[in-house]
Design a protein around this nucleic acid. Sequence first.
RNA 1: GCGUCUGUAGCUCAGCUGGAUAGAGCAAUAGCCUUCUAAGCUAUGGGUCGUAGGUUCGAAUCCUACCAGACGCGCCA
Length: 569
Amino acid sequence: MIEKSLFRICENLSEFLEASPQDLFSMLEFPPDSSKGDRALPCFRFAKAMKKSPQDLASACKSILVRQELPLGIDRIETAGGYCNIYLKSSFVAKEVLEPLFSSPETYGHLIRDKAPVAVIEFSSPNIAKPFSIGHLRSTNIGASLSRIFQARGWKVIKINHLGDWGTQFGKLIAAYRRWGSADQLGEDPIRALFKLYVKFHEEEDKDATLLQEARENFAKLEKKDEEARELWQWFRDLTLKELKTLYDKLSIGFDYYWGESFYMDQIPDLIKTLQEKNLAQESEGALIVDLKDEGNGVALLRKGDESSLYLTRDLAAAIYRHQQFSFDQMLYIVGGEQQLHFKQLFSILKKLGQDWSDRCEHINFGQISFGDERMSTRKGNVVFLSDVLSRAKEMAQNIVREKNPELENIEDVAEQVSLGAVLFADLSARRAKSVKFSWEDILSFDGETGPYLQYAFVRTRSLLERYGKKPEMIEDFSQFQAPEEVELLRTLSQFSYALERAEKEREPFVVGQYLIEVTKRFNRFYQAVRILDTEAQQLKGRILLVFAASKVLESGMKLLGIPRPEKM
RNA sequence: GCGUCUGUAGCUCAGCUGGAUAGAGCAAUAGCCUUCUAAGCUAUGGGUCGUAGGUUCGAAUCCUACCAGACGCGCCA
């Protein structure tokens, strides 16, 4: 184990630097480039207390370390500036990468824990009766990736789709349907038909003040289990859910529970009662509120004047219910940053309710997708539908595949995979918090650091392995990798688990994407610089094993991000 | 007005638990296919890290103020 040897070094320096080995270990960093070693210990921090220059300290560290035998796999120690740089033997790195990758490629880089902590992850959560826009892709994509990353990091993950299937919007929809809709309209493309009704409602709303009133009344009826309203609601919900599931299948995303907002409806009266009994809720202007002004979180609305529930009420019920069911160690809400206040209020009220697990709830926010200069708005109808993006991307990919690889058999399938790769990766190519301007050009890009870039490298590995024709075998001599491109590739492959760890800690799937770009870059350089298939037997065996290793890491990482892995393209 | 987030190359973004010369991709220019898929590889140019202070041996990174943009702040979700 690389970590073991590095930890040994920290132990050996512990006394001299007057710091625990654990602290030293956590201080180790990756140098900017490999000429400065594999890990570095910065000595600046100790300079003041020990009244020595960082340079002298680094040298002292070096002499302490070289005085005795270096731990297994450590090649040498050098100093540069105030850094004590640790160089690993490249044969050691090769062994550490290739052996586990060969014996259990599926779990390479993963963390196995004795007892898996439980994470509830709520994501995607689209609104029923509204088309799935490119904006919804963010929560879906981040949530699905994070779920897989958490699993790879040893969590048991429970995935919940908190469908937006309750609320005043349904009152609006029912009102719109009654005025302008008909059953035939919903036959062909029900979602678009419902969407048109929704947009029309908001157009007419400005002219006709009674509309909103009617919508609210409809929703109140729905909550009071009015049969007719409920039938319509059920119908709209079924239509949407059917279409949603097709989309999730296409993206290979599954949920453990489709517990939408409506699911918690019956739990709300008790919740309200408890809140009142604990004197947390108070009447104000006809509504029921929790005053959180003293902590800077404004006023939280629990119940409207007409007694109907609100988003926050349903989220409170949902959180409590989920905790009862799963007693999770962590709950992540993958929801846009514009709802920050809502989640602050939610967590704060949970705490006031005495739910001590409230600090295990976390809002994983992300920036918005804007469209040109305007914010995308379903109400105004200026949205980009995910289905349109996907079909346009597929069309474009098809043209490119036809041009680049005309003999390919299943061009349409490959185009589908490549276009999905492009769209999904584009969505994960910046940190969550960044808001992104939607651009066809960016999302349909196939060159440079994109999904297809990863896929192309993966295809190259598959092609090499196929041409090789045999199963790769384990090698004995790990010192045969001499070319710098081989060493660099191995070095990068050895860092997979760090990428996963960082992605988990920062809740950033993007970190895995960045890492895969790095692997791909290293692989391409290796491929360019070195012949693989037409070399002598020993070298061939080693290089094909390295190709196998790269292929598996790429595959594993792309799986985590939901990026399809074509065999040919 | 208050709060949160963002501001780094022409464009899109890394780097932000302080540290070694501020890195990629796109676009531009110049090379590399009689050899394993050129959706690739190599090279070149391109930067007051929003502004001004402060902390520090050291600041793109931490603190303060200001500027610009996005979002949120009582009956939507």
